[in-house]
Each structure stands twice: as C-alpha cells, then as structure tokens.
Design a protein around this nucleic acid. Sequence first.
DNA 1: CTTGGAATGTCAACAAGGCTGACGTAGTTT
DNA 2: AAACTACGTCAGCCTTGTTGACATTCCAAG
Lengths: 163, 163
Amino acid sequence: MDDHSDTLLFLTDEQLRRAIEAMFFAYRGFTADPDRILAARGYGRAHHRAIHFIHRTPGTTVNNLLGILGVTKQSLNRVLRTLVEDGLVDSRIGTRDRRERHLTLTQDGETLEAELSTAQRARMRAAFREAGPGAVAGFRTVLEHMMDPEQRRHFAAVRDGER
Amino acid sequence: MDDHSDTLLFLTDEQLRRAIEAMFFAYRGFTADPDRILAARGYGRAHHRAIHFIHRTPGTTVNNLLGILGVTKQSLNRVLRTLVEDGLVDSRIGTRDRRERHLTLTQDGETLEAELSTAQRARMRAAFREAGPGAVAGFRTVLEHMMDPEQRRHFAAVRDGER
DNA sequence: CTTGGAATGTCAACAAGGCTGACGTAGTTT
DNA sequence: AAACTACGTCAGCCTTGTTGACATTCCAAG
C-alpha cells in the first residue's frame, strides 16, 4: 500500500501484476497437454479432474469428490456417468452404507490417467529443472498460501494421506 | 523414472503429482476473490480476462486481444459487447486503420479493474509474504517455464512493454 | 415397528462461454 | 478493380456449471 510494504516485501504492485499474468498463462500451459489428449477422446477438463482424484483416492465416494472439486453433484454426476459408461470408472454401491457409491478407476481408466499424468508431470519436471531445485520449495509454498483455507485443508489431507 | 532422475532433479513422481494438485487448488484460490466481485455484477471469468488485458494495453485492438486470450472472435465479441453496453469499455474506430477498433477502459471500467486487481494482488502479496522473498523469483521462473512458447512470447512482450 | 428426516445420488431444464461455419461491411493493399 | 483484412453478427453445437424435483437408503425418535 505504501513505501514500507514495498520495501519490506520487495514487491511492487507492478511485480504482483506480472505474477498474476504469469499465473494465467502458466495455467493454460499446465492444462494444454492433457487437454489435447482428452479432446481426442471427446473429454474435457472436468473429466480430467474426476479421473485425477479417483486415482488419488481409490474407493472415494461421490460426496467426497464433490467436496474436493467444489462443484454440484449434478455437474459431477454427468461427467461420472460418461466415464462409467465408457468403462473408465467403476461405481460400486457401498457395503456399509448402500446410499454411497465407491469410485475406482478400471484398468482402462488407469491407462488414461497415466497418459494424462505423464504428460503433465513432464512439463512440470521441465519447468522445475530450468528453475533449479531451490525454486521448487518456494513455488509450492507460494501455491499453498494462495489457496482458500478450505481448499488447503483438502490439499493437506491428500498430502498426508499419501505418505 | 529411476533413482538417478530423482537424485539429479530432487523430484519424485509423487512430488510432481503434489505440485500438480497444488497448482489446481491454488488457481481456484487465485480467481476466487475476483469471481465473487464479478458474480455480483453478473460477469464471469471471461469478462475479467478482457478487462485485465485492456487495462494492461490501453488502445489494444480486438485482433490483438484475440491472440492473447486464445479464444475465437465470436466468443470474445459476446463478452466485449456487454462490457461496451454497460459502459465499462470504450471501442473507438482506429484513426490510422479505420477497420480496427481500439479498446480502452472507461472510468467505470478502471474502477472495476482496480477493485478486481486489488483483491487479487492482496492474495498474491499475502502468499508471497508467507513464502518469503526468496520464493518470489523461483515462483515466477517456474511459471514462466510452464507456459507454451507462444504464450511465453506474449508474456515477455507485455513484461518488456510495460517497463 | 413405523415414520419422518437427513444423506446420497439421478433426471430435467437452463445459462455461460467455449467452438465452427457462413456471411456482411468496411477499409486497405495490390 | 480485385483481393485481402478487421470486425461484427447470426445460427447452431458442446461442455460444464447452475437450480429444482425426485427416488432411494439409512437412522433415530416415538
């Protein structure tokens, strides 16, 4: 706001604006490779998100996924239905609570997930390599602090759960 | 892939997957504040993008904007029309080439832009503050290398032009 | 045991914002 | 004069978000 904040943080409004634009362009690059793979199959971003988190937490329920993705159940359901119909996702009625549907990737689903993930990781890895090892920690810290608290909880939960 | 790549890059596939998720959640946080402001006026992400880049490059042409945003003119036109109708954007016929339309924000447009930008910068600033000054450079380097080459050219052009 | 409410998931209809294709109208270039 | 370029628009489609209504299932209170 004033000279002090600039001095203390080493950040002018102009620098922040550039960071904002970098975020915008980078996110497009971030999804570009998966989007090409998905488009070839008639899928979109929403399918990728579902596939990613089902892979991450096999057996997760629809409700659980809703919390992570932050969309309505109707919206998710449409995507999920096509994935189940196409044999990429398995939806099994819960044994303990028969209202729940437990979601897992089929073998075909895992294959697509690997394809998407490999492409995306390759780009990430290249970006990290060029930025140097020191940048990685800082990058993740900044991203983590940019999340909403609720999103951050999800993130931390996934992180800890996968240890 | 093997132990060597881990050792050389300090990056396991698992670390990369976490970075991918961090990117996903962070981008949502990144747009959350503007989205609230926009929604109150009946606008969406597309309006923000147009407003941002018109502010950034006052007098830019429609064609120019199309290249930056990477959408079709039909799609952009819909957004632009509402912004002009609502008195946030001024579309003036070019003097040198009268086929072109030069776009600038009106006073009202600048007001909204400031509101959106302030909210977004505040979150960025907070994230950077918590990550520490060393993280800022690394963060931007990683983002820059994550872009497609074409996107990166646009980014560099904006960066150099605004000096 | 039954009944009412809460949780879970599905179907229907609508809106925003992408897309392609076709076309019109200026203005510019050759 | 002809061709090309910049922009706008109409029509129609797709994805992915939304709300509302509804069926099923579970659980807890009476």
